[in-house]
Design a protein around this nucleic acid. Structure first.
Length: 414
DNA sequence: AAGTGTTTACGTTTAG
DNA sequence: CTAAACGTAAACACTT
């Protein structure tokens, strides 16, 4: 009966939390950042279930965006029309779903803000999850789950002039305001001041990440399943390809999410993901199964590159030990060599109607630029060496932006 | 006014 | 079983 044949999956709720869905949307975008409305679209397009009760779930989604530190807000540039800001993933939230379940994270990604000097604030609303004062409580002395906590010491009030994605890079590369759109990560940095709260830390972190290598790969640091760098042989190649090509495959990349084993279900048994997914009536992309089905619009579409990456992951690539002391993959994020493409200074923000998919297409080989390729990242290679350092001493110009804000990422074993 | 963002509050589900 | 993660509702404040 539950023959998923082709009946609509619409009546079934996708096995993903709002956080997962949102992350997918963002990750799927060419610039790794999307305005709220586009996030809605993304979800509605591929998950019929969400074509209804929009009022309800969208409110929830918004709540999640604001409430979770894994999402960072990036303001629009003045010349970019539209409502609301762009949303991106926090660079360090990469392994939120390391447990394999996209329904529930093992632990909520929380940014620690050390700053709070006067923040005895306990008083206020700390996230329910995190105690007041914003300190995350480790309560699990068991596994040394090394969590990266980004601490922001002193955030400045930066006045961001060009908040757009591009900005990020511009900051690092000293490129003109309209440089290529880069990893949102950096962007945040540029726009940090705009709003207080988690954003600030995020901004700082982002800046660091961006500075350290920026770019697609850098958009979200610290991936646990796709060590961007330092893998062995083939795997490395695959990963590299994936990274430089269609944009690195963040764990949230739809390809990964859908393609990866759906542990929530498999966990116990270990059924091949394809079966399980199928059982659930979900299209089965192909990591293991290779069955790229496309019942759902784009869900599950896995391009060859992604597949390669998946393969690498499946192959059991070790999680790169090459993470710097600050949680930012030291060199992983920098593609210096691999892609020093002349980022085409392009549109900062392609219109919302951007063809995300197509933009991903570009090339595995040719960085070149056809036209509106956001190859921003590249530019940011600027300060590769030490992220933090670079952060502090702006490689450049837009000094204004990160002036005064010092980022501090700390590795914590909880 | 409608769309966005933030916050609270509280019920539900599930990992540990 | 408990605590944390998650989902939902709702009351604002802001911005376009």
């Amino acid at each position: 009966m539950p023959r998923p044949g082709k009946s609509s999956y619409s009546d079934q709720k996708p096995p993903y939390s709002y956080i997962s869905l949102t992350a997918m949307a963002i990750q799927h975008s060419a610039e790794k950042m999307l305005p709220l409305s586009d996030i809605y679209k993304f979800i509605m397009e591929r998950f019929p279930y969400y074509r209804e009760h929009t009022q309800r779930w969208q409110n929830s989604l918004r709540h999640n965006l604001s409430f979770n530190d894994c999402f960072i807000k990036i303001p629009r540039r003045p010349d970019q029309p539209g409502k609301g800001s762009f949303w991106a993933l926090h660079p360090d939230c990469g392994d939120m779903f390391e447990n394999g379940s996209f329904l529930r994270r093992r632990k909520r990604f929380k940014v620690l803000r050390a700053d709070h000097a006067h923040l005895h604030a306990g008083s206020t609303k700390g996230a329910p999850g995190a105690g007041p004062g914003g300190h995350l409580h480790p309560h699990h002395h068991h596994h040394p789950t090394t969590t990266i906590i980004t601490t922001l010491l002193r955030t400045t009030t930066i006045t961001t002039t060009h908040p757009s994605p591009a900005a990020y890079c511009s900051a690092a590369a000293s490129a003109p305001p309209v440089a290529a759109p880069a990893a949102p990560t950096a962007a945040v940095a540029a726009s940090a001041a705009v709003s207080p709260g988690k954003m600030q830390e995020a901004a700082a972190v982002a800046a660091a990440a961006a500075a350290s290598g920026g770019g697609r790969v850098g958009s979200v640091g610290r991936l646990s399943q796709f060590p961007p760098y330092g893998l062995g042989s083939a795997a490395a190649a695959a990963a590299a390809a994936a990274a430089s090509t269609s944009g690195f495959k963040h764990p949230f990349a739809i390809e990964n999410i859908i393609g990866r084993d759906y542990k929530g279900v498999l966990q116990a048994g270990g059924l091949p993901l394809a079966s399980v997914m199928h059982h659930l009536g979900y299209p089965v992309p192909g990591q293991l199964g290779n069955v790229v089905s496309s019942v759902w619009p784009h869900v599950g579409v896995m391009d060859s590159v992604a597949a390669a990456a998946a393969a690498a992951a499946a192959a059991g690539v070790p999680v790169g030990p090459e993470y710097g002391a600050f949680g930012v993959p030291v060199k992983a994020l920098c593609h210096s060599a691999s892609q020093s493409l002349p980022a085409v200074p392009v549109p900062i923000k392609p219109t919302p109607a951007l063809p995300p998919v197509s933009s991903l297409q570009p090339a595995l080989t040719v960085p070149a630029a056809s036209q509106q390729p956001p190859a921003p990242s590249t530019v940011c290679s600027a300060a590769a060496a030490s992220p933090v350092a670079s952060l502090l001493e702006p490689t450049a110009p837009t000094a204004a932006e990160s002036k005064g804000s010092s980022l501090h990422s700390v590795l914590v074993h909880s």
